[in-house]
């Protein structure tokens, strides 16, 4: 008894010393994605298509590289955390998430634009007495802070002369926000197109940005951790290639309906999703290029976020964008002139 007990610490230490083997290719590529309000491991748009048909898995199957997809209910900020902690290599997030993450020192590169023009919807509880956007003053508004919807809300408030400090923001993820609105936990919520509480007749839609492109989101994008991109540039390029294929598919008007049907897997309403993008040019929406226009929009977001106290410091946008992967892939696919520059 005495002797084997003494050996236990040594055995434990041996067990602890298991570590990852260095290699010229990763054994797994890990993606952080924004989860949806219904807790379902699906997403819509180009990424929904990529995932539905396992394009990433197919691309890397011959190399024996596994693909791991994490859908975070904490949305973009959770993706940032996963990348910062070295738990994810890539992240697909919205515009404000990119800016607050980079401003806070997140070591990532923005390598692909995607999904601009996302709308923000303001839903209100009828009992709150809110009739106009100005009536939001002093009210409790549920929003997932740090996301593109947070930015959309601030811009909408700004449009009617209100600031964040004029309202009471309650930090809630999408699912909790719906519950809070339904149970009078908040007076209003800012959300994406999905609005089950309105659909049930419990809440009312006050406003949305479908006719106000100045309040719509800028393209979110694909982030890669700097360390991964530096270590595996070819793998990074192949990931970009798969994503651009997805965006090419989603950019085609003929596939609009199929996108909506794929989106049903997330639990979202077909009708709301359809109405949300009804007036949008898909080719423009899913343009993967990091154009001068995209860079300008990000500069504007940075200025807005700084002025409104969402970030504390600016950063050099040149340290964020890396167009090399998308430009190389577009050329390789012969798509360099498909999307507008």
């Amino acid at each position: 008894m005495k002797h084997w007990i003494k050996l236990l610490p040594i055995v434990s230490l041996l067990f602890m010393s298991v570590s990852a083997q260095a290699s010229d290719k990763p054994s797994v590529i890990r993606f952080g994605l924004v989860g949806n309000a219904y807790g379902k491991p699906y997403t819509s748009g180009p990424l929904g298509y990529v995932n539905e048909y396992g394009l990433l898995e197919k691309e890397f199957a011959k190399d024996g590289i596994k693909i791991e997809l994490s859908y975070f209910t904490g949305a973009g900020p959770a993706v940032n955390e996963a990348i910062a902690s070295g738990l994810d290599d890539f992240g697909s997030v919205g515009d404000l998430v990119v800016v607050v993450g980079k401003s806070g020192g997140l070591k990532v590169k923005y390598i692909l634009a995607s999904g601009g023009g996302s709308n923000t919807y303001i839903q209100v509880n009828p009992a709150s007495g809110i009739k106009t956007l100005k009536d939001l003053k002093g009210k409790r508004i549920g929003v997932n802070k740090g996301t593109y919807i947070h930015l959309g809300l601030d811009r909408i408030l700004d449009g009617v002369g209100l600031k964040e400090k004029d309202v009471k923001l309650v930090n809630l993820n999408a699912g909790d926000a719906n519950n809070a609105l339904a149970t009078n936990g908040v007076d209003a919520i800012a959300s994406s197109a999905d609005r089950p509480v309105v659909d049930q007749g419990i809440a009312k839609l006050l406003y949305d940005t479908r006719k106000a492109p100045q309040y719509q989101s800028s393209p979110g994008g694909l982030l890669v951790s700097e360390s991964f991109a530096k270590k595996y540039p070819e793998i990074t390029k192949r990931v970009v290639k798969v994503f651009i294929k997805g965006q090419y598919w989603a950019s085609q008007e003929q596939n609009r309906e199929k996108q909506l049907i794929l989106g049903l897997k997330t639990g979202s309403s077909y009708k709301n999703s359809k109405d949300d993008i009804a007036d949008q040019d898909l080719k423009k929406k899913y343009n993967p290029q990091i154009t001068a226009s995209v860079e300008k929009k990000y500069l504007e977001i940075e200025d807005f976020a700084l002025a409104h106290g969402i970030i504390r410091r600016k950063f050099n946008l040149d340290t964020l964008f890396d167009k090399s992967y998308s430009e190389a892939v577009l050329k390789e696919l012969g798509l360099q002139n498909y999307w507008e520059k």
Binding site: Y248, W249, Y270, K274, L335
Partner: peptide
């Protein structure tokens, strides 16, 4: 109804191949 089934099967959607023809 605008949508009958939420299910999409692979053959219905043109998966771009290695060389995408724009």
């Amino acid at each position: 109804p605008e949508v009958e089934s939420p299910e999409v099967t692979a053959p219905e959607v043109a998966a771009p191949g290695d060389a995408v023809d724009p």
